[in-house]
Amino acid sequence: MGRYNLAPQRVHKTATQLLQTKRAPASPPPWYPILSTVPPSSRLDRPPLQRSQLPGHKPPGGRKKSRLYKPLQLRYEEDRLRWEYFNDHPWELARPRVVLEDDGRDAERWDWSVPLDHALSRPRAGEVGERGESLDIEWEAVRARQAGRPINGEAVVQRQRYLITHGHPPQLAYDTARKEFYRHRHQVEIATRVAREEALAVGAFFGPGPLEVGMGLEDRAYEQWKGWAEKEVAAMKQMAGAAYTGTETESGREGLDVPEGPGVEAEELQEVAGSVPASSRGQLAQGGAGVHP
């Protein structure tokens, strides 16, 4: 195969041939035995990855393009639920979310049969359920296991999927999960606000927020521009006044910050104007320091 260099796959074969023809050293290299017992896998084969069409089913418009060797599109049931939820709540995507996993089995730890607002529905002490169980102890046992469950948009999707698989109609499942989430989020927001107010009441200072910082920067830029513009206007007025008097005032240009580089250069050129290299008069022996400092 011209395109591919298959030497890496053939190391063992090559070594065997070299050993047989005694072109290599007498004993095989250290990798030789293990490569014969654990050979590399086959390469460059195209396994059929999907069916071209359903068996016994013909596409209406004649023959379809074969997708036999194209990888499958992966779709999951939750995708549709996510699509619906995040279209209804687009700002939920703006909230930061931890996607780091510990050991890959993190998702197994969370029990989605527990409502999302379980933390808020704590039973009164000593309350007894229908089967005679004490509800508050049960609640605490559930909290001990599920307190770390992240309650966010993804939790709504998971809870909804759980409810659908356990017999709820999809719309009811969506509403149930959504409203549990709303209740939880409402409570969190209130708790945050109250905490902030409490902190402010006892003298906390949270510093300027991002909007204040932005406004401050903008104000500073405006002030700078104002100072610059005032100077400009003064200079222009002075120049206009000088134009009618008929006297050259260099002082008027001072405000305009004209760089004086060209003036110096012109002066230096004047000095060497008479000396032109490769002319009939020739070049004066002035040295290059003045021209090329």
């Binding site: 390469r43 084969d45 195209r46 396994p47 990888p71 499958l72 599109q73 992966l74």
Partner: peptide, 12 residues
Amino acid sequence: NPSNAKYIFGVR
């Protein structure tokens, strides 16, 4: 690289 087709589970 289509040579990797056999290692690929799907497209997401």
